[in-house]
Design a protein around this nucleic acid. Structure first.
Length: 853
RNA sequence: GCAGGAGUGGCGGAAUUGGCAGACGCGCUGGACUCAAAAUCCAGUGGAGCUCAAAACUCCGUGUGGGUUCGACUCCCACCUCCUGCACCA
């Protein structure tokens, strides 16, 4: 007859409904219990529905959430929607369906799919970044940032009213605006004509890959002064338990470098050029200066006969996008300005050039070129026949001239002395110190630290985003909205089309552009830019702690409960999401959190204590899943054919959580077989409890396997090593399903072990075993170390490290006995008779190794 | 180029502190059940040699080449390949 397969469709629907009606997973805040906050990166609800990759991370956090509940923790495990974004807006442009409607539809699809997978989210805490009750607080935080300046002495943000105003300043408001953490600036932005919007630097490549063209264009934009936090964003990485690769990416992105600023007088003028260098020790080898084409001194110092060439070069450089400038990096180009500067160390006159390999936005926009010891300068000097002078020699040997490439390593300073200072013979670190001392004494240089990190371009010319709560007045002034004026709600716009002017569609809404301000009596318009998608995701993990609060973004006591009170530890206990957010989202959220921390709104310095990236699931062909390759696996179909428990188990069994691994449609058949066997272990073919489950004590061997399984599953869950936990459960089922009498105690405990992984079948079996309530809060089984140990262990006997025999001995057999057993063994005698024994190594419980001549 | 990570059977992957390499699953082979098939259950399954065959036995084997050690997937040195990120950042 047909072997019973377990009726997953009936069981899964039944228990999902049960959890819903009983509010099984509503968060408990019992103060007598410890807390655990486990969070997924909330999804952007796209029209395509859930991807097979989503359930991977979500299952992992669900296992942890369910396990921690069984361990007696109050667990916060919420879900929400990062729902503002360009794809929805573009969808609306082509279909005419309002973004609000499209978003609601997409959220409904995602929510149905997540519920179908049986995740234990507390849906009463669901949040949506497009809900005015949510973005009211995103705007509130923008307001806080706008009303702040960064006090570099105290290393924290402070209210703008507390900014000291120098007596020389007469326009106080302008001075304040120049110090706010949110400010407007005319910046070259990445303009995309087809999208009718600017893009962040980080977004450019993504859209270029999709075939859009992006060009540089100066526009007035909102910027956020994240650079003020560079040092703290770097230093506080030491406080968090994150993948090393992600920390390293953030460090590279922040890009701290220590060096010096050195001032070079321009010959025959009052002007001087200040450069930033990490190698002040090579000053004696600086044979020319290079300014960025955008450098403000360029028009001032350029000699008349060189002006045409310089202007032509600048025009050409502006025409190029950043990408082209870097793409053509092989060939360095530049022009001479006709001006000379004085090298303060050598007292020689050196030419000043401009070149587009020097970037205005890094350092001072000017460099001293040391062609012998910098590869870029070397290439430039070679191309334009500029002098190359060696001032550092390798620790051993000497460089041969002419150089074939720059010597950029540390070494020994050479040919570096004048009347006042000599670096000769000093190793590079010492030479740096010596020259810096001299430069500072002479007042022409000082130590300096620079970061690659740039300020955050915060405005987008889009409709479907949080409005920036700013009123611009006709007189050119502006004000940020007060707390009682928030939220500033998005007006309804029926027809969403690009304006073509670079402004968002909000610029076409009369009520938005024609505003009489009741507080000032002035006329003006609201800001037409909206916030980037990153804004809403910067603080959603805080809102989950208290999602319905109308007085605060979250109650301070609840934040202290869920994040912890130690500023140096705390935050979300486990945060799981894709590595593609390793830099941007995680850096912005950390910055945002630190501003709130500076005002005491959050109790911890860092938002996420532990971070984990789940790996990518590839198509069965080992390539990335994509519609065009036709290798996409649809979660709906898998759940329909195999059930949610099977999908959850399979995604966890596929391999280590962090690994990139291919899908396998044969592999999921194996999981189905496991679940069917498991079902038959507990049930009769008619679905009632198996008669083989009886109240008998466990044998010694059965107890050992049970307790080993408990230990292995618990330890593997805590290490996020779910594939090996499942392997151990398979071993258990393989053994116990063949027993004619299955001890009830083992059967009950095993169901509890299984529950975090495959909750539906576990609940059903728990009920069959006679328990009326959900197992969600049953204590997780514990193991007895005594029962785990073998009474008899197998010892490997080796001669010269080759296995020659195996013996069974009592587990507590001591070293001398083991040695004697080995030497007496007939199998061993064959190999050692007539030879000299040099050494005998005994590892109790493992092996004896006899070393002979 | 720089940084981070990874290389183990036909495939996905296991392997505490250095101690029997290949757990578990897939696939494959053989068998039981069946008129037959599916489902299920049982047995086998790294390679080579030896053998009519099997057992037993021997040798080789964790990207490559060295090293440390009684003993190396694991530690050290050099290299190769792949993935991921950054890339004229002075």
């Amino acid at each position: 007859m047909f072997m019973a397969a377990y009726p997953f469709d009936r069981i899964e629907a039944k228990w999902q409904q049960f959890w819903d009606t009983h509010q099984t997973f509503a968060t408990r805040e019992d103060p007598s219990k410890p807390k655990f906050y486990v969070l997924d990166m909330f999804p952007y609800p796209s029209g395509a529905g859930l991807h097979i990759g989503h359930p991977e991370g979500y299952t992992a956090t669900d296992i942890i959430a369910r396990y921690m509940r069984m361990r007696g923790y109050n667990v916060l495990h919420p879900m929400g929607w990062d729902a503002f974004g360009l794809p929805t807006e573009r969808y609306s442009m082509t279909t005419g369906i309002h973004p609000r409607t499209a978003t609601a539809n997409n959220i409904a699809t995602f929510k149905r799919q997540l519920k179908m997978l049986g995740f234990s989210y507390d849906w009463t805490r669901e949040i949506d970044t497009t809900d005015p009750r949510y973005y009211r607080w995103t705007q509130w935080m923008f307001r806080l940032i706008y009303n702040s300046w960064y006090d570099h002495e105290q290393q924290r943000a402070r209210p703008i009213e507390e900014l000291p105003i120098p007596s020389t300043v007469d326009n106080v408001e302008a001075y304040r605006d120049a110090h706010r953490l949110a400010y407007m600036a005319l910046v070259p932005v990445n303009w995309c004509e087809e999208l009718g919007t600017v893009l962040a630097n980080e977004e450019v490549d993504e859209w270029r890959e999709k075939g859009y063209t992006v060009e540089r264009r100066p526009m007035r934009q909102w910027m956020i002064r994240i650079t003020a936090y560079a040092e703290r964003l770097l230093a506080d990485l030491d406080l968090v338990d994150w993948p090393e690769s992600t920390k390293e990416m953030q460090r590279n992105w922040i890009g701290k470098s220590e060096g010096a600023e050195i001032t070079f007088p321009v010959i025959g003028t009052e002007e001087s050029v200040t450069v930033f260098t990490t190698r002040p020790d090579t000053l004696f080898g600086a044979t020319y200066l290079v300014l960025s084409p955008e450098h403000p001194l360029v028009p001032i110092i350029t000699e008349p006969e060189y002006r045409d060439a310089v202007d032509a070069y600048i025009t050409e450089a502006h025409r190029k996008t950043d990408l082209e400038r870097t793409d053509l990096a092989r060939e360095k180009t530049g022009v001479f300005t006709g001006a000379f500067a004085l090298n303060p160390a050598t007292k020689r006159e050196i030419p000043i050039w401009i070149a587009d390999y020097v970037l205005m936005h890094y350092g001072t926009g000017a460099i001293m070129a040391v062609p012998a010891h910098d590869q870029r300068d070397f290439e430039f000097a070679t191309a334009y026949r500029l002098p190359i002078e060696i001032v550092v020699q390798p620790p051993t040997g000497a460089l041969e001239e002419p150089l074939s490439h720059a010597y950029t390593d540390d070494g020994i300073a050479w040919n570096s002395s004048n009347d006042e200072v000599s670096l000769d013979g000093l190793p590079t670190p010492d030479a740096k110190k010596r020259i810096l001392t001299w430069l500072q004494q002479r007042g022409i240089g000082r130590p300096a630290i620079r970061y690659k990190l740039r300020d955050w371009l915060f405005s987008r010319q889009r409709y479907w985003g949080e409005p920036i709560p700013i009123l611009h007045f006709d007189d050119g002034t502006r004000r940020v909205l007060d707390e009682d004026e928030l939220p500033l709600e998005l007006p309804d716009v029926q027809d969403i089309k690009p304006t073509g002017t670079g402004e968002s569609v909000l610029a076409t809404v009369p009520a938005w552009m024609d505003v009489w301000d009741p507080k000032t009596g002035k006329h003006g318009h609201y800001e037409t830019n909206t916030m980037p998608q990153w804004a809403g995701s910067c603080w959603y993990y805080l809102r989950f702690c208290d999602p319905h609060n109308t007085e605060h973004f979250a109650d301070p006591n609840r934040l202290r409960y869920w994040l912890g009170t130690d500023p140096n530890r705390g935050g979300v206990d486990l945060y799981v999401g894709g590595a593609e957010h390793a830099v941007l989202h995680l850096l912005y959220a950390r910055f945002w959190h630190k501003v709130l921390y500076d005002y005491g709104y959050v109790p911890t310095k860092e938002p996420f204590a532990k971070l984990f990236h789940q790996g990518l699931i590839l198509g069965e062909d080992g390539r990335k899943m994509s519609k065009s390759l036709g290798n996409v696996i649809n979660p709906d179909e898998i759940v329909r054919d195999y059930g949610a428990d099977a999908l959850r188990l399979f995604e966890m069994f596929l391999g280590p959580l962090e690994a990139t691994k291919p899908w396998s449609s044969q592999g999921i058949e194996g999981i189905k077989r496991f679940l069917d066997r498991l079902w038959r272990m507990y049930t009769e073919p008619n679905g009632s409890l198996s008669r083989a489950i009886v109240d008998v004590p466990l044998t010694r061997d059965q107890a050992r396997l049970l307790h080993r399984t408990i230990k292995k599953v618990q330890e593997d869950i805590e290490a996020l090593s779910f594939n090996t936990a499942i392997a151990q459960m398979m071993i258990f089922v393989n053994e116990f399903s063949r027993l004619p009498e299955r001890p009830r105690e083992a059967m009950e405990k095993f169901v509890l072990l299984l529950a975090p992984f495959a909750p539906h079948i576990a609940e059903e079996l728990w009920q069959l075993l006679g328990h009326p309530n959900s197992l969600a809060y049953e204590p997780f089984p514990t193991w007895d170390e005594e029962l785990i140990h073998d009474e008899v262990v197998e010892i490997v006997l080796q001669v010269n490290s080759k296995v020659r025999a195996k013996i069974h001995v009592p587990a507590d057999c001591n070293i001398d006995q083991l040695k004697q057993y080995a030497l007496d063994s007939e199998d061993i005698q064959r190999f050692i008779s007539g030879k000299t024994i040099k050494n005998v190594i005994v590892v109790p419980g493992k092996l004896v190794n006899i070393v002979v001549e």
